[in-house]
Design a protein around this nucleic acid. Structure first.
Lengths: 333, 333
DNA sequence: TTGAAAGCGCTAACAT
DNA sequence: ATGTTAGCGCTTTCAA
């Protein structure tokens, strides 16, 4: 048997013998409240377990304290991916720092229920939304941009105009990777990366090309193999690439590198003796491979933290933040 | 250059030349609106990209259409775990069926920010919340239960009284597993499972004990080894158990079974010849092990779907739904 | 079929 | 230091 009357500020006030304004002041830690009144109000609030209605609060204050992260990704991809794990951890941290509540909206497919999707980010629902760039999120990003939604995009969408965006320096990263392989004396340096609908892949190819060109080499397009950014994709791409006899490979994602290792092992090719490998991402798994993978480490958690920071800022001006990456040299190259 | 005035029902109505009530009716697909009026309103809504304010809607209708899933789990555990992947997929499906929006609240630590935690599930924020049972969620579950929050618990918390709860038949599952091993003629059947703060583990031990007893055997407690429900935990527990020379092991989670396989391989013990193994969970990875793992399959996605169903129901009476599990026989036993 | 009016529960400016 | 009042933007009777 619990309380009979619906709890509101008014009701709490009635029980204490003060007005709802006073209760509101107590709840919001307003200074101008008599200590004894404050104590009595707090006692009743405690005793009743009263929680102010969030919808009413949001309506009047025009803010919810909620940050949404939208991920247009298959659930099993989402959960298998160390990138999201780190990103979410970073966003969570950022939210904690800014006193915001973090909520993830995993969306199996944008096509599926566009009505819900747009409702989710209507006014009064979240204070801001973080969207990760990817082949399926481009339309959503454009809609939200045009609607003036408070949004930060992580990564590189097709159209970056008019966005607040945060990304890592993909081009330089792959340039570092390829340069490292060249400097180690490798002659036939190949590239394995995601298909072109993943825009970061294009940037990484650019870096790879740039490094070769800078070293006075010509780019052999047959040494560039693209596939889905999964272990299997890396495996397939490697099988294709190995036909052309590379003595080094820059793999544009660590996950694909796992597949590349598999393909190399199957052929009996030694790493790095026969084929040197440099990855990109810096996932934990890269260090656990045999041999440990030399890779370009990107600060994923920081990306998440900074995204929240950007969202929390007053300014809503278009802006790009590009974070630097680092080459971690291990045994594979 | 976009619209100058803030868009509200009132403003849309003004532009069309009708009252805000009429606009509301159009938006909510109310039947009694003249076709031409409806068309004109829809045109302006479309043209302006107007979205009704969700906070205002929630305030008056007392519902948000939002279902929250709270997971008191470390981020990297969460993302590595196929259980959550399947569960979230099921919940997402359930929400889609009921026209609800699904939102996940990953909470790194309950201790960290109790104020936020409780604010998250205050009135007017979500229509209902799903909480997964686990060692850290017991306090939260009790608070929400006492507050009368619309909640469904997945799994087995410490105190199940007064809850709407959905779970799988852990006891019977482990009974099936152990019985299978006994029927295959195994003499020393061990048990490896999570530490006792994971309550489902206790149920699975019960099933294991029950099977031995039913077969007229005595339970040797030295053959029961508990550790964290991770690959490493399984590995450690197996090392400990192997000292006592089991010829079969029921591992209470597939994830731990991966670690058990490792330990067995290290000792040069063959599966199932030297030691037969039966897992529990039915994750994809179980089928991919060498040899493929015989395991008790639980319907995780269905658990998620049914949880939403339960939440969407009118009744808020305490209730328990226990779903059946199945033994999938493969090569490991 | 439509509009006017009340009110959801809260915050904040204004009075006292 | 506290109460009164006016909305926030919407849904929903109730009249017309």
């Amino acid at each position: 048997m619990r309380h009979t009357k619906k709890l509101t500020l008014e009701e709490i006030g009635a029980r204490v013998g003060v007005s709802r304004s006073t209760v509101s002041r107590v709840l919001n830690h307003h200074p101008d409240v008599a200590p004894d009144v404050r104590a009595r109000v707090e006692a009743v609030v405690e005793e009743t377990g009263f929680q102010p209605n969030q919808a009413a609060r949001a309506l009047v204050s025009q803010k919810t304290g909620l940050i949404g992260l939208v991920m247009l990704t298959e659930m099993h991809e989402l959960f298998g991916d160390p990138y999201y794990s780190a990103l979410v951890a970073g966003i969570d941290q950022g939210c904690a720092e800014h006193g915001l509540i973090f909520s993830m909206f995993p969306v199996q497919s944008a096509e599926g229920r566009p009505d819900l999707l747009s409702r989710q980010f209507a006014q009064g629902f979240v204070d801001g939304v973080i969207v990760t760039a990817g082949p399926f999120s481009d339309p959503l990003i454009e809609v939200l941009r045009d609607r003036g939604t408070n949004m930060v995009v992580i990564g590189h969408p097709r159209d970056t105009s008019g966005l607040r965006r945060i990304d890592v320096d993909n081009r330089t990263g792959s340039e570092l990777a390829a340069t490292h392989l060249i400097e180690r004396g490798r002659q036939r340096v190949g590239f394995i990366g995601p298909t072109s609908d993943y825009h970061y892949g294009a940037e990484r190819i650019d870096g790879y090309r740039g490094a070769l060109t800078a070293a006075g080499r010509t780019v052999d397009d047959r040494l560039i193999c693209l596939d889905y950014p999964s272990v299997d994709g890396g495996h397939r791409a490697a099988q294709q690439l190995l036909v052309h006899g590379p003595d080094a490979i820059h793999v544009a994602t660590d996950t694909m590198a796992v597949g590349v290792y598999e393909a190399l092992n199957e052929r009996g090719l030694r790493i790095p003796d026969d084929v040197a490998v440099v990855g990109f991402d810096g996932f934990t798994r890269a260090a656990e491979l045999a041999p440990p993978l030399t890779t370009v480490v990107q600060p994923v958690e920081e990306v998440g933290r900074r995204a929240v920071e950007l969202l929390a800022e007053a300014s809503t001006e278009p802006r790009e933040i590009i974070l630097p990456v680092n080459l971690h040299i291990r045994a594979s190259a």
